[in-house]
Each structure stands twice: as structure tokens, then as C-alpha cells.
Design a protein around this nucleic acid. Structure first.
Length: 514
RNA sequence: GCUUCCUUAGCUCAGUCGGUAGAGCAACUGACUCUUAAUCAGUGGGUCACAGGUUCGAAUCCUGUAGGGAGCACCA
């Protein structure tokens, strides 16, 4: 009788099918299941085991501990036969095979026809091993938990003779994967590992810092004056107060105010926003860690940084070595330390320390580094470093002692005139951290920010703005302080071997769909 | 922002010289009591990204638009 009803409905559907025939059919199946008295969307299900627990704990010698179990998951494959069927259900971690025998579940077996890949079911039964050797669950009772009314782009996998996993019809379209991340997570579940590791990294940073008694704080995202980095901001508007606000580009200036206020170690893990180009290393919103510790300098911060990153690698990869593309990165401490001008000398073959701007431009030309017209000394050095030095910095390297012009918030070097006490850490050819002995001489700080304001007035809209309240805080007096910034997304990329920032940001920015 | 490539069925992709749309998987019907890319037989499914143009005729050639990938520029 059920079959006759089915046939009747299918014919009806087939006539009105145009584009979404598969979806229409699923909705019709849903109706049929409900007409048969089934709740397609019940409220809960008592799961006793995860799929992983079944797979890990099953014992051929003594299967009794898993003789009364309840598992749940999304149907990812379905092999129906006349009197016996198999499917795989996927939970958060694993796929598990379910065996349906008609004689055991005569009432439900008929409804198997109305189930599809994508539906979520709960299964009560016992664990056993099939003749083909796969640990499975013998279904004694099946409960529909959610009917899926859209089609999943399902991939199929086999393991070839050499043990390699081969995926057929992989859901591979990058755009669709980023836009429909929920489908990506279902169909390419291995990407979950990246986001789990991301959470582990961030939690471990908090553990390590909190252990030391450092205070996690939250400073404003909406700021009337932005600063702390060279970047263009996003602008938004407060309606009630009727003024424009900026989304923060860095936490720095607020965190330093807190050090002035008397906190001796503060950190923040938060989103920053920069209104600039996007590529595999840049997303308009990104997560950064900033840490400020009073009475310390950049030498101390270098040790803190290498210990932190080394510990994170160990935690996530169970090793101090991490594979990144073709490289194997070794995070064994101490990391290499190299002065910026020594690196120039090493990779350019000449000592440019005391070169005039004109001489530097000649070096650029010789090395095919193109410069914008009227490039400042800071710009010239920056370009030259990016082109000639940075690509060589594969293993973790602290580049130290930058020219003063490049670092308006860093303290002048204690022995080297014209330089500041700053380090950036490079790995795999890209910048991962930025840190300095923080500038706390208010006269020097005012002068440097006024210089930035001039550069800004001359048309460089990435130069810093003058924040009088920040200067006021520095005038009140900030103790000697070491500061650190780490790009968390890039750190996750490094430690999880992902080549694009979009693969470590779970919902990366895309243009809106039309 | 620039360069370049891509967009065909739910997914992955073919589509020759411009002649009116193909495969595998997914789906549907039937068979099948340990399958696993299940198998076997049969069936349905297309605004060829969008808009123009050339042509007797366009998935195919031309122009524009949209979205995306890769690279460059800027930046972290």
C-alpha cells in the first residue's frame, strides 16, 4: 500500500519537476514520512557513544561492552539491497558503517527508501565486525533525526592498493567551499582538523599567559581615532552621536594606556580590520595577539616569543618541526637572531648601513627593485628588504634593530644611533610577529607622531594619525615596556600547513553573491 | 587597482572546424540478505554565468558585465 502511494506521488512530482527535481522529491519524501506518523525533526536523541569511541573500543574477543549502544550522524553513503542495506553515518570525527537487516527492523526497513544521503539518523543496536572486516553497528532501531531537503555534493573515496586515499568527484570549487562552508565541512571533514587546531593554539596561548598571571583585556573595536599600525581603516558611523568611528587596525595604543594605568602585563586576542587588498596572506578582518609587559625590553620579549611559538608547535603537532609546503620548519629554540643591516649585507653583498638615499636607490636598481617616485628612506629600505632579504628567511628568524624611520612607536636603540629596538620574526618567507621595546619618552613620541602626521599630510594615508590622548598617557608616564604582536591567522597557517589565509578563517570575506 | 585564466546537469568534468548537449557519480524505477566508488537492467535531469553583437546557425567567435582562482601592487 505504501508502495502504491509512493508511485502515485512520484508521478505527480515528476510532472511538475523542472529544475530541482531532487529537492522536490525529498520534500515529498518528508511529507510521506510525516503522513506515516514519523517526526522528521524530533527534539533530542540519547547518544551513548561517538563513532570514534565505537571504532576505537570495539574488540572482537569481547564485543559485549558495545552490545547496547546508540550512535547518531549524517548519512554519507547508502547501499540499499532487497533485504539488507548498509550506510555510513558521519559524526563530528568519524564515519561509521550501519548494517540494516530487514528481518530485524521490519517496520523501518520500508522507510529506508525514503532516506537519503544528507539525512541525520540515530541508531540503537550493537557493534560487530562484518564479513568484510569493517567495524559496524547492527541496527535494532532507527530514528530519523533530521530530513535533509537539499542535495549534498557527495564525494566518494576509495583506498587504492598503495594505501592512498583517492577521492572521486571531490567538492573542490574554492568559491563554493568558502561561501558554503557548512557544506565544505560535511563533505571535506578533514578541514575540521585545521579549525580544531586553531582553537587549540588560541586556548594554549591563553593558558600560557594566564599561567604567568598576565591579564586578558578587551579594548574598543570602534575607535574615534585609529592608530598603532600603518594601514587604512574601515569607517563606520554612530547614528545617535552622529559621528564617524573607525574599526581598529591595532590594539596597541589602548593596551599601552593600560600599562600607564598600572597593569603590568596585559594581552588581547582580537579581530583587527584593515581596508586593504586581500590575497592568500591577507583577509580584511584578521585575528591578532598583542602583549605588553612592563619593566621588560625586546630581548626579553624575543625569548618569550620563541618559547611561546615553540610550545604551540609542540602542542599542535607533537613535534618542534612543522611541515609547511615544501619546507620543514624547525621551531627548536633559540631562533636565529640577525640584525637588519647584517642581513642586507649577507644577501646584497654590500654594507648599506651608511648609504645616502641616492646610493640606496642605486642598490635597488641594481637588484631590480622598483620604487615609487619620491620614495622615502623608510620606503626604500622596506622595499629592498622585502625583495632581497625576506624570501631567504625560511627558518624562524628574528630580524632586529630597524631604522628609526620605519618604527614610530619603538624606542631608540640603546647603543646604535638611528635604529630602534625592534624585532620582526620571519618564517617561511613571511612576517609573523612584530615587537619592540616600547617608546615611552613623551618628547620623542610626540616628535615621531608629528613626523607621521606630516607624511600623512603629504598624501600617505597609511601614515599614523596624531592621538593626543595617547600622548597624554605617555606624558603621565609609561614604565619601560616590551610589546609584541602576532598574526594568529598566519601562525595557524604555519602550524597547520595551509597555504591560504582563507583556509584558516572559517568564513573568509568574499564579494556578496548576486 | 593591474595581469592572466576559469564559469557546461546536484558534484567532477568532456564537448574537435561554428551545425542545435555528453560521461561518471548523485537521483528515480525494478532486481538483489555482509555491501563498501556495491552490482545489474531501465529512466529522468541543461537559461552552456549574464547581456549584447557577428552569422542562415553560437557552449564554441567578438564586446561588455558579474563572480571566482593564480600572480603582481599595497599591507600583517
Amino acid at each position: 500500500m505504501q508502495n502504491i502511494l509512493l508511485l502515485y506521488c512520484y508521478e505527480n512530482i515528476m510532472q511538475e519537476i523542472s529544475k530541482n527535481d531532487q529537492e522536490l522529491r525529498r520534500i515529498e519524501e518528508l511529507n510521506l514520512l510525516e503522513e506515516a506518523g514519523m517526526n522528521a525533526f524530533p527534539y533530542s536523541f540519547d547518544k551513548t557513544h561517538s563513532n570514534r569511541q565505537i571504532l576505537q573500543n570495539f574488540s572482537d574477543e569481547d564485543p559485549t561492552p558495545l552490545s547496547e549502544i546508540a550512535v547518531a550522524g549524517r548519512i554519507m553513503s547508502l547501499r540499499r539491497m532487497g533485504k539488507a542495506s548498509f550506510c555510513h553515518i558521519q559524526d563530528e570525527d568519524e564515519r561509521l558503517q550501519i548494517y540494516f537487516k530487514r528481518d530485524e527492523i521490519p517496520d523501518f526497513y520500508e522507510y529506508l527508501k525514503l532516506l537519503d544521503i544528507g539525512d541525520i539518523i540515530g541508531v540503537n543496536g550493537y557493534a560487530f565486525r562484518t564479513k568484510m572486516g569493517e567495524i559496524s553497528v547492527f541496527a535494532k532501531k532507527v530514528t530519523l533525526l533530521t530530513k535533509s531537503t537539499k542535495i549534498l555534493p557527495i564525494a566518494k573515496e576509495i583506498v587504492d592498493e598503495e594505501g592512498n586515499k583517492v577521492v572521486f568527484d571531490e567538492f573542490a570549487d574554492k568559491e563554493l567551499r568558502y561561501r558554503k562552508r557548512y557544506i565544505d565541512l560535511i563533505v571535506n571533514p578533514e578541514i575540521k582538523e585545521v579549525f580544531k587546531k586553531r582553537a587549540i593554539i588560541i586556548n594554549e596561548i591563553r593558558n600560557i599567559f594566564n599561567e604567568k598571571g598576565w591579564l586578558e583585556v578587551e579594548t574598543p573595536v570602534l575607535q574615534p581615532i585609529y592608530g598603532g599600525a600603518s594601514a587604512r581603516p574601515f569607517i563606520t558611523h554612530h547614528n545617535a552621536l552622529d559621528f564617524d568611528l573607525y574599526l581598529r587596525i591595532a590594539d596597541e595604543l589602548y593596551l599601552k594606556r593600560l600599562i600607564v594605568g598600572g597593569f603590568e602585563a596585559v594581552y588581547e586576542i582580537s579581530k583587527n580590520f584593515r581596508n586593504e587588498g586581500m590575497d592568500r596572506m591577507h583577509n580584511p578582518e584578521f585575528t591578532s595577539l598583542e602583549l605588553y609587559v612592563a619593566y621588560k625590553d625586546y630581548n626579553w620579549m624575543m625569548e618569550t616569543t620563541e618559547n611561546l611559538i615553540s610550545a604551540l608547535c609542540q602542542k599542535v603537532n607533537n613535534s618542534l618541526k612543522a611541515k609547511f609546503g615544501d619546507y620543514e620548519i624547525d621551531f627548536t629554540t633559540p631562533f636565529r637572531r640577525a640584525k637588519m643591516f647584517d642581513l642586507f649585507e649577507q644577501y646584497l653583498g654590500e654594507n648599506i648601513r651608511n648609504y645616502s638615499d641616492e646610493e640606496l636607490k642605486k642598490v635597488c636598481k641594481k637588484n631590480q627593485v622598483e620604487l615609487p617616485q619620491n620614495a622615502s628612506r623608510m620606503k626604500i629600505l622596506d622595499e629592498l628588504f622585502d625583495a632581497a632579504v625576506q624570501p631567504h628567511l625560511i627558518q624562524p628568524t628574528f630580524v632586529i634593530d630597524y631604522p628609526l624611520e620605519m618604527s614610530p612607536l619603538a624606542k631608540s636603540h640603546r647603543t646604535e644611533p638611528g635604529l630602534v629596538e625592534r624585532f620582526e620574526m620571519f618564517v617561511a618567507g613571511f612576517e609573523l610577529t612584530n615587537a619592540f621595546s616600547e617608546l615611552n619618552d613623551p618628547r620623542d613620541q610626540r616628535q615621531r607622531l608629528e613626523e607621521q602626521a606630516k607624511i600623512r599630510a603629504a598624501g600617505d594615508d597609511e601614515a599614523m594619525t596624531l592621538d593626543e590622548d595617547f600622548l597624554n598617557a605617555i606624558e603621565i608616564g609609561m614604565p619601560p615596556t616590551a610589546g609584541l604582536g602576532i598574526g594568529i591567522d598566519r601562525l595557524v597557517m604555519l602550524l597547520t600547513n595551509q597555504k591560504s589565509i582563507r583556509d584558516v578563517i572559517i568564513f573568509p570575506l568574499l564579494r556578496p553573491e548576486k
